[in-house]
Amino acid sequence: MDFSVAFNAARDSLPYMLGGVGWTAGLICGSMLLGLALGVPLSVLQVYGPKPVRRAVSLYVWLFRGIPILVQLYIFYFGLLAWLSQLPGLTDIGLDSPFTAAVLVLGLTSSAYQSQIFRGAIQSLPGGQLKAARALGMTDAQAIRTVILPQALRLSIPGWSNEYSILLKDSALAFTIGVVEIMARMRSIASTTHEPVSMAFVAGIIFFALTWVGVKGLSLLENKVRIAGYTRQGAV
């Protein structure tokens, strides 16, 4: 292996590889938000909901945590969404795009994991918090919104930052259904240049950097919303 050839290949590939960052970032943002939007209500339902609802949430979590991302991508992209997008009225809304499928899969899976992060945080709060809110005449919905969630969400940030780095790594699987993110570009450029070693390194470094940036950003957020005397808890 000629080192300078490898280095030049790496340098030349950089702009193309970095072009994948936008797709990767889109996948992560989309799926994190979807995961958050579904994960918070799921966690509340799993803690405070009536028994059948709690069961249903557990089933949902079991399903999405038990099936590999890769298999889910195939189920959604080659199966469900391909089928749905052929139904009348659903043909033109982009259901058959690989990006949609990937965000959906990553987001739904993440919602299952995020719901468990939030659930852990809610359950780590002293039980008296809810009681005290009720004693003031708050409805349960008010108590959860103004007392429980503001505390639980703060406690969830370390778990959330963990979830970010997991999503980042899982997002690389989207290449299997044709999203042209970093991994997809690495593969195609490696096969044309016959320099897979340097391409793997470049991709590795980019992912590494993205992990670092996100984790750093979330820890800044954590400091910003920190409340005096609140101790940081380990990832739940």
């Binding site: 292996m1 790594k169 690389a172 699987l173 490696a190 897979p196 070693v197 793997a200 590795g204 992912f207």
Partner: peptide, 23 residues
């Protein structure tokens, strides 16, 4: 940190496709 910081797919790719190129 290297193996936790990069996606498993990239690692799989490395061991299978790239390793033979390292002489």
């Amino acid at each position: 940190s290297l193996f936790r910081g990069t996606p498993l797919v990239v690692q799989v790719f490395f061991w299978y496709f790239a390793l033979p190129y390292i002489k």
